[in-house]
């Protein structure tokens, strides 16, 4: 790989933009295609398919067999609520390779002492979220129980097509939240995209166990259900 191709690749990844490397394994010839340039590429159909699946592999082309690597942005986790569960969830997610950001306007919660190694924004979601460029490679989790904080953040996450959206809360909280979100214009289909009750059913009790159940569900959404977004795009 030429160093300038590698540098462009790393630069695009830093900017959270998808990028492809197309390699002829026999000759070693290689080129890079940015996601923004797919439409004009001779292999655009193949590249679009690989982007949807997020899978690298060999493809037959008019120029022979080539290996196509697709680099999609690394997954991110955005959490509202600098709460006890978040203190466990953030390091677990970081270990799995997620960039983690926590949003909580309550400064007593959103302190550096409580979250030494995580980006914590002590702002309201309407201020904190737009600059984060939340995207379909982002998981969003609402953990405050406070509608003033969680509701606007959930609406934002749905609008940005996050691959996972989860909200903490009892059945009562869940029903009330659904009523409020419907009043805000959401459909049943939108509401069905919110994982609630949050997390896999592993009998979690402690905050750390709940964090494990949430992280398990996030991984499941990323790895087992890539078809959902692909189907939505095809529709």
């Amino acid at each position: 790989m030429k160093l300038d191709i590698l540098q462009t690749l790393n630069g695009e990844r830093d900017a959270r933009r998808a990028v492809f490397i197309i390699t002829d394994l026999d000759s070693g010839a290689q080129r890079l295609v940015k996601a923004a340039d797919i439409a004009g590429d001779p292999l655009h159909e193949t590249l679009e398919k690989r982007l949807r699946m997020g899978k690298s592999g060999m493809d037959e082309t008019a120029q022979g067999r080539v290996f196509i690597t697709v680099h999609v942005p690394s997954p991110r986790l955005v959490i509202t609520g600098a709460v006890h569960i978040s203190q466990a969830l953030a390091p677990i997610a970081q270990m799995l390779g997620y960039d983690v950001t926590i949003v909580d306007p309550r400064t007593a919660f959103a302190s550096k002492e409580r979250f030494p190694d995580v980006t914590v924004l002590a702002e309201w979601p309407d201020v904190a979220l737009p600059p984060l460029n939340v995207d379909r490679y982002t998981a969003f989790v609402a953990l405050t129980h406070d509608p003033k904080i969680d509701d606007p953040a959930l609406l934002h996450a749905l609008k940005r097509d996050c691959f996972y959206i989860g909200a903490l809360g009892s059945k009562k909280t869940y029903a009330k939240r659904n009523d409020r979100l419907k009043a805000a214009g959401l459909t049943d289909t939108d509401l069905a995209r919110i994982h609630a009750p949050i997390g896999l059913d592993i009998g979690a009790i402690s905050p750390s166990e709940i964090a494990v159940s949430i992280m398990g569900e996030i991984v499941q959404s990323l790895r087992q259900k890539p078809a959902r977004t692909a189907k939505a795009e095809a529709a």
């Binding site: 540098q7 790393n10 990844r13 690394s74 390779g97």
Partner: peptide, 14 residues
């Protein structure tokens, strides 16, 4: 992580 590996490749080469 994937991006560490590719960044490391760039750093080592440079």
């Amino acid at each position: 992580r994937d991006e560490h590996i590719l960044k490391t490749a760039e750093d080592w080469a440079q």
